[in-house]
């Protein structure tokens, strides 16, 4: 899941300072699950914004709406009539949703209401951790299902480095050393000897380093190309 965190209220108030009527737009996908930009967060932020502006004596009309997914154009189509009447949109979707929203409404200012943090997992109520970096060429087969790219502070492929102690990473004592996890898991599975082999240098061209990525599956494409 994509993990996001709401931006500080002052930053958002700054974005909206010149507007009188905004649409606070939530998303029913990842940001709902990670409690950053779902219907409830839209409601809370809506109240916060309205009250803050009321207090300043410059009322802000807040329209609140949460759609199924902001990363799909078809759901954005459904709110065109609402968007028409507002000065700007404050999107609480992840970076993808915010951009899709901006693309769907080219004549409308779209402000980001969250910081998109990482691809991760919910470990506990209020606790999320990174798990994947979308490097484009998965190596989990070699690393016992634990990703060194996303979870090792140095993304090394032949760890653990000399800073691993008591299973923790030198960069942050609260972070598990990914390579200690990999080592221990493979040991449990009786596969630790596989780590004696050197993992070759990675082809980063499948990652962001190859430029913005695009996936085309011709088998799925329709005649119209849309």
């Amino acid at each position: 899941m994509i993990i996001a965190e709401r931006k500080p209220i002052d930053e958002i108030l700054g974005f909206l300072s010149k507007h009188q009527k905004v649409l606070v737009l939530g998303c029913g996908g990842c940001v709902t699950v990670c409690l950053a930009g779902g219907e409830k967060e839209v409601g809370i932020l809506g109240s916060e914004l309205a009250m803050a502006r009321s207090k300043e004596g410059r009322p802000l009309e807040v329209v609140q709406k949460t759609i199924e997914r902001q990363c799909d154009f078809e759901y954005l189509e459904g709110i065109r009539h609402i968007v028409k009447d507002v000065d700007a949109i404050l999107s609480l979707a992840c970076g993808i949703g915010i951009q899709t929203c901006a693309e769907a409404f080219p004549d409308k200012i779209v402000w980001p209401g969250v910081n998109t943090k990482f691809l991760g997992v919910n470990l506990n109520v209020g606790v999320w951790a990174e798990r994947c970096q979308a490097c484009g060429q998965c190596v989990l087969d070699k690393t016992g299902g634990i990703c060194p790219v996303a979870r090792c502070s140095k993304s090394i492929f032949n760890g653990p480095c000399g800073g691993s102690q008591n299973g923790k990473c030198e960069v942050d004592p609260d972070t598990d050393c990914a390579w200690a996890l990999i080592h221990d898991r493979l040991a449990r599975l009786g596969e630790v000897d596989s780590l004696r082999e050197i993992m070759a240098i990675k082809d980063w061209s499948f990652s962001r380093d190859g430029g913005p990525r695009k996936l085309v599956r011709e088998d799925l494409e329709l005649e119209s190309g849309k």
Partner: peptide, 11 residues
């Protein structure tokens, strides 16, 4: 009770 109810009440 939830934050959102308090906030809506305070509006």
């Amino acid at each position: 009770i939830d934050v959102i109810y308090f906030m809506k009440a305070l509006e």
